[in-house]
Simulated scan of single mutants.
Amino acid sequence: MPLLTIRHSTAYRYQQPVSLGEHRIMMRPREAFDQRLLSARLAIDPEPTELRWLHDVFGNSVAIALFDRRADSLVIVSEATLEHAPIAQQHVDVEAYARLFPFTYSAEDMPDLLRSIERQHLDPGRVVDNWARAFVSNDGNTETIALLTSMAMSIKRDFTYVARHEKGTQSPIETLNKRQGTCRDFALLMIEGVRALGFAARFVSGYVYNPSRSEGVVGGGNTHAWVRIFLPGSGWVEFDPTNGIVGNRGLIRVAVARDPYQAIPLSGTWFGLPASFLGMDVTVDVRRADPDEFPSSGLGAVNSRLAGALGK
């Protein structure tokens, strides 16, 4: 079970001091059975007059920072150490009734999944629908996992990854036409594609790392985006169309949302002359932590560290 340390730094630069407004920070990894947070720290310069935490409607941890002074820079650094338990594709289990597509979610699950099944982008020409339907065989023997894996692998194989630092996400139709995009563009395309087939899907923002030197991953050095799809028997399962990953191997969740705009890592306002903004620098570093700092045999010590971290 890898022990990882994540350092996510964002620095805004201004030509002259500006007034800083409220900033919303979503960088703290989510607590779950497959990723256990051992420590977390958020450092902000200049120091905010108020920093409060909340859980949004999806259960993501969000920090709200308020300022009362002018500054010519703003630096926000999130550091976290966690235990990560990779789940591979072969460990994804699906209930018998859902192993072949199509299937219908149970009456107990459907009311809570409906908003994650609804399409969020107009497709009057059924472009996304037709693209998604191409992954369904005509003989009625389409395996659910095979269908979803094929779609993720197809995006990795047939589309070109291009980094883009501007805000926003391409529409799924635009991504299909251009045959290129960022990880968030690919995630949104797959979300709308599987929703067109009746699956419940959500957007995930987080971090990607290389579990072994023999594997190459795309999207490191910044935040990464992928998809979670609800499958009876395993619940929410990760699919990363940028890297062709099924399961959470190499993927660390921070935020889960219905749409990309709900999972922005950092957003805020500032007041000053339009020409004052000089730029923004973002770095993300994921590396293996020193096990001696968090000995797995000392559960009491780990719990003590965890309690202290949650109080920071």
Results as ranks from 00 to 15, higher is better:
residue 32 A to Y: 03
residue 247 G to M: 08
residue 165 H to E: 11
residue 268 G to M: 12
residue 207 Y to P: 07
residue 185 D to I: 05
residue 245 I to D: 02
residue 134 A to E: 05
residue 129 D to S: 07
residue 276 S to L: 00
residue 266 L to Y: 12
residue 199 F to C: 01
residue 211 P to Q: 12
residue 297 S to H: 14
residue 196 A to I: 00
residue 99 R to P: 02
residue 281 D to C: 02
residue 219 G to D: 04
residue 181 G to S: 07
residue 89 Q to P: 00
residue 307 A to M: 14
residue 232 P to D: 05
residue 160 T to Q: 11
residue 291 P to T: 08
residue 28 R to Q: 13
residue 214 S to T: 11
residue 5 T to N: 12
residue 56 D to T: 06
residue 135 F to H: 11
residue 43 A to R: 15
residue 219 G to Y: 11
residue 124 P to S: 10
residue 302 V to C: 08
residue 200 A to Y: 01
residue 291 P to Y: 09
residue 305 R to P: 00
residue 60 N to L: 10
residue 130 N to S: 11
residue 158 D to Y: 04
residue 108 E to K: 13
residue 19 S to V: 10
residue 126 R to Q: 14
residue 177 N to C: 05
residue 83 E to H: 08
residue 282 V to P: 04
residue 190 M to E: 03
residue 301 A to D: 09
residue 97 Y to S: 11
residue 297 S to G: 05
residue 180 Q to A: 14
residue 255 A to F: 02
residue 264 I to L: 13
residue 246 V to Y: 04
residue 244 G to D: 02
residue 250 G to F: 07
residue 43 A to T: 15
residue 229 I to W: 07
residue 94 V to E: 02
residue 221 G to R: 10
residue 206 G to K: 05
residue 249 R to A: 10
residue 210 N to L: 09
residue 129 D to N: 06
residue 68 D to F: 02
residue 195 R to V: 01
residue 143 E to A: 09
residue 9 S to L: 14
residue 254 V to Q: 08
residue 296 S to T: 10
residue 299 L to D: 04
residue 40 A to P: 00
residue 200 A to F: 06
residue 218 V to P: 02
residue 145 I to G: 00
residue 133 R to P: 00
residue 250 G to A: 07
residue 90 Q to R: 15
residue 201 A to D: 01
residue 45 D to F: 12
residue 78 S to I: 03
residue 274 P to I: 08
residue 212 S to W: 02
residue 246 V to A: 12
residue 259 D to E: 14
residue 174 E to H: 06
residue 143 E to H: 13
residue 187 A to G: 09
residue 193 G to R: 00
residue 139 D to C: 10
residue 195 R to A: 03
residue 186 F to C: 06
residue 47 E to D: 03
residue 211 P to Y: 13
residue 301 A to N: 09
residue 59 G to F: 08
residue 119 R to N: 03
residue 184 R to C: 00
residue 272 G to D: 06
residue 93 D to V: 14
residue 84 H to L: 12
residue 36 R to S: 04
residue 151 M to A: 15
residue 85 A to K: 13
residue 264 I to R: 12
residue 144 T to A: 04
residue 199 F to H: 04
residue 289 A to N: 07
residue 135 F to C: 01
residue 196 A to N: 13
residue 38 L to C: 04
residue 38 L to F: 08
residue 91 H to L: 09
residue 288 R to F: 12
residue 153 M to F: 07
residue 54 L to Y: 08
residue 30 R to Y: 05
residue 279 G to T: 09
residue 227 V to W: 05
residue 134 A to K: 03
residue 289 A to C: 08
residue 142 T to V: 06
residue 50 E to M: 10
residue 308 G to F: 11
residue 130 N to R: 15
residue 4 L to A: 09
residue 101 F to W: 15
residue 105 Y to M: 03
residue 150 S to D: 11
residue 53 W to Y: 14
residue 214 S to R: 13
residue 252 I to T: 08
residue 226 W to R: 04
residue 196 A to G: 12
residue 171 S to G: 10
residue 47 E to N: 05
residue 261 Y to E: 12
residue 140 G to T: 06
residue 125 G to A: 15
residue 283 T to C: 01
residue 63 A to N: 06
residue 171 S to A: 03
residue 245 I to R: 15
residue 182 T to D: 00
residue 242 T to N: 10
residue 208 V to N: 03
residue 171 S to N: 02
residue 18 V to E: 07
residue 56 D to A: 09
residue 126 R to T: 03
